[in-house]
Design a protein around this nucleic acid. Structure first.
Length: 447
DNA sequence: TCTGGGGTCCTAGGACCC
DNA sequence: TCTGGGGTCCTAGGACCC
């Protein structure tokens, strides 16, 4: 804990849904849910309008559909669009200080003490936070963030959570315990359902209750590291540094199937495709790893992992796939699998000894499709399977828009963009050759 | 038609080595 | 024929976070 309030935490408000509302004018002010839209999907982000009906992150999408009124937009994610907006925000943070630690796509810490000559008084950082929020809203086309500033990561994070959305809270140095102690323990990072239940059983509900427990009690309750952590956090003792470049420890890809799978041939091909993605991501970041892990979740939701450590690090999709296939054979598929995952850990930079591996599944350098994609490149799926709700599209005559829904060989598109008024809806044949997937729209006019 | 996907960190037991 | 302890690696699982 520092003597000045020099750590800032930013949390973008209902981020995925906010980007959707920015890019889709007809959704502004209306409930929007972003997440998995299939039968086994869950909610990633609900807009504040959707939260009013009880939609929440991590809730099954089916449950959110039951709670929200008709007219609620249920959209799959457009991660390229979220990434672009996130990058704009992270750059604004780096103008405040070189020490910026992104926690996720919509969250970051900033060490203001490492920045150029900030006034770190309470009024100084309050003004800094106010200006930052303004600049974020302007640069992102209206996405808002909640800012917390305090003497540690703990206090900055707690503060950003106190006044959502669009909040700004500065905890004055010396006032930490006044803010912290009345809060429920579940507001502390690291206290999830399991720890909360155990704490509850010994009468701990608030952070003040937690602070009354001895270190040995907490270690007995939560284990050595976690117990010591809780003991410190309850006293606002936190000297964790803002770390701008965290090392990657693992790379993985997993998938929940629409229906449980048993067929070993089908599962093997799933493994191959996941291994290809993992291998590509490893190579594009120049990593390779020694331990291959297969994760599987059975029909009854029991989840196991099986891993094997190879003698040499690899980024070769075929070796990753062969290892994972062997692990699947050992684990068995009886009863059916709802999920498979393939991961690589034990990473190091630069693979040894595979300089001559063929690069079959490297991204192709050329030709890059410059204009509209050629229809012949589309996979042989039922036409409507190409479309998913929320997707950006362009129609040669009707212009840019996004997919509202699809089915029965048709696709419904709303033709509008971030800089237009709410636009008209048209239903088209799903195989209409004039309709193509498109890149995310620009939310501001190019300079 | 309950329960995603990408991660991190910790614990614990056994093997193995000194 | 008994008596160790410490350190590291590997594997599996669990809690947690966004």
């Amino acid at each position: 804990m520092r003597r000045e309030a020099s750590i800032l935490h930013l949390d973008l408000d209902a981020f995925f849904a906010a980007v959707e509302q920015r890019d889709k004018p007809s959704l502004r002010g209306r409930p929007v849910v972003v997440g998995g839209v299939g039968g086994r999907g869950v909610v990633a982000t609900a807009s504040y309008e959707a939260r009013a009906y009880g939609a929440r992150s991590a809730m099954s999408t089916a449950e959110a559909r039951r709670r929200c009124p008709s007219g609620t937009a249920f959209l799959g994610g457009r991660f390229a669009a979220y990434r672009r907006t996130s990058d704009v925000v992270m750059e604004l943070l780096r103008e405040l200080s070189p020490l910026v630690e992104p926690v996720s796509i919509d969250e970051a810490y900033v060490d203001l003490a490492a920045g150029p000559g900030h006034d770190l008084s309470v009024s100084g950082v309050t003004e800094l936070g106010r200006r930052l929020k303004e600049r974020i809203a302007t640069a992102t086309g209206g996405v808002t963030g909640s800012v917390g500033i305090g003497s540690s990561k703990l206090m900055a994070k707690i503060a950003s959570d106190l006044d959502k959305p669009d909040g700004l809270v500065v905890v004055p140095p010396g006032g930490e315990l006044d803010v912290l102690h009345p809060l429920p323990v579940t507001r502390l990072g690291g206290v999830g359902p399991a720890t909360a239940e155990r704490l509850h059983q010994v009468g701990v509900k608030t952070v003040a209750d937690l602070a009354a427990k001895s270190l040995p009690d907490l270690v007995a309750l939560a284990g050595r590291a976690h117990g010591a952590g809780l003991h410190a956090l309850a006293r606002a003792e936190d000297d964790r540094a803002v770390v701008p470049d965290r090392e990657v420890k693992s790379v993985s890809h997993e998938e929940t199937f629409e229906r449980d799978l048993t067929d070993v041939g089908v599962l093997g091909r799933e493994i191959d495709s996941m291994a290809t993605r993992v291998g590509s991501r490893l190579r594009s970041s120049a990593y390779s790893g020694r331990t291959v892990t297969l994760k599987l979740r059975r029909y009854d939701f029991t989840t196991i992992t099986r891993s094997q450590t190879l003698p040499q690090p690899t980024d070769d999709a075929r070796l990753i796939a062969a290892t994972a296939r062997r692990l699947l054979t050992e684990a068995g598929t009886s009863g059916g699998l709802r999920l498979l995952g393939v991961g690589v850990s034990g990473l190091s930079l630069y693979a040894q000894g595979d300089l001559f591996a063929d690069d079959e599944d490297l991204p192709q350098e050329s030709p890059a499709p410059a204009g509209p994609e050629e229809p012949t490149e589309q996979p042989a799926l039922p036409a409507e399977k190409r479309w998913w709700p929320g997707q950006d599209v362009r129609h040669e005559e009707l212009g840019a828009g996004w997919v509202w829904g699809r089915g029965l060989g048709r696709v419904t598109v709303r033709f509008e963009g971030p800089l237009t008024p709410p636009g008209p809806v048209r239903t088209l044949a799903a195989d209409d050759p004039l309709l193509q997937p498109a890149d995310p729209p620009h939310w501001r006019t190019p300079e």
